[in-house]
């Protein structure tokens, strides 16, 4: 047994093992390219060319931005997504902190409840929310039991922008809690304890220790939720107003009701571009972290 005899075996093995991972990731990558990137690129190029001459043209974008309805929809969608995200963090941050630092039985129950929306299909939660929040719905009836005067003042968010925000927040809670909780679980208890030892108060610990270390989790939750909220359809369609509408609903209406596939494509490409910008931020934050970790 000499070294030269054993050499070929590990060599061929290592060649196979270098190729294997690429083989394994090839199908999903091909699929993503074939089903998403390629059609998206095609669409994007099509929106940038004149259908007749084939020359470069911004005419379709000029049309989009000259049309009051589509611009209103775009702004409305961004607003809805940002408002929903704000509400989402206001609800999920305290919830995640509570679940991280509390180990009681109640906390386990709360965690289970907070994950519940994940298991309810979107269309069902939309109808459930309608029945809950609309005028004379369950919520108003409950308020009425407490005080009829309060029920008179009840403002139903159904078929209003607020309806969309409530629906989107409800749908996104489980995912966000999971991401934030995962980030919080990575925090070293020692850091917090030593800060407490030298007299730091809770607010100080939260803003100076927890928040900075949570940067990445927050960014992930922000980006992924923004993308899904921006392109949401079921909730804005069923809970939102007839005007203005979000991009998802507008696209569907443009394509099916107005039978204007070109305009719908332009709307889709603009939506896609905005979402991919946010996606880029996400990819950078994730891969940046990896490089730093080396």
């Amino acid at each position: 047994m000499t070294a030269s005899q054993t050499e070929p075996a590990p060599h061929s093995k290592s060649r196979f093992s270098t190729v294997l991972p690429y083989l394994l990731v090839a199908p999903p990558i091909l699929m993503v390219f074939g089903l998403i990137f390629f059609p998206a690129l095609q669409s994007t190029l099509r929106t940038l060319t004149d259908a007749e001459t084939g020359a470069f043209s911004l005419a379709r974008y000029e049309m989009f931005f000259a049309d009051k309805t589509s611009v209103t929809s775009l702004i409305f969608t961004i607003q809805i997504a940002l408002e929903s995200l704000l509400g989402l963090f206001v609800i999920c941050f305290p919830l995640a902190l509570y679940l991280r630092f509390n180990t009681s039985r109640i906390a386990t129950g709360v965690q289970m409840i907070s994950l519940l929306p994940m298991f309810v299909p979107g269309i069902m939660s939309a109808y459930a929310l309608i029945r809950f929040v609309r005028g004379r719905g369950l919520f108003e009836t409950l308020i009425y039991q407490v005080s009829p005067l309060l029920a008179d003042a009840y403002y139903s968010p159904y078929v209003k922008p607020e309806g969309i925000v409530i629906g989107l927040i409800w749908e996104a809670i489980p995912f966000t809690v999971l991401i934030l909780l995962a980030g919080l679980r990575q925090l070293d208890n020692g850091l917090i304890e030593s800060a407490q030892d030298i007299g730091a108060n809770r607010w100080y610990i939260f803003t100076r220790i927890i928040l900075p270390l949570m940067r990445r989790s927050i960014l992930i939750a922000f980006c992924l939720n923004f993308i899904s909220m921006f392109g949401a359809y079921t909730i804005p369609y069923l809970l939102g107003p007839a005007a203005p509408q979000t991009m998802g609903v507008l696209m569907q209406r443009t394509l099916q009701d107005y039978q204007q596939p070109l305009e719908a494509e332009t709307q889709a490409v603009i939506t896609f571009l905005i979402c991919s910008l946010v996606g880029l931020v996400y990819v950078q934050s994730v891969s940046g972290e990896r490089v730093r970790k080396g």
């Binding site: 309608i130 029945r131 609309r134």
Partner: peptide
């Protein structure tokens, strides 16, 4: 406020809204 379909309208009517 205009609901998104025939059934949502019927539901508003059924609830007495």
């Amino acid at each position: 406020a205009y609901p998104a379909g025939n059934n949502p309208v019927l539901e508003l009517f059924a609830s007495g809204e």
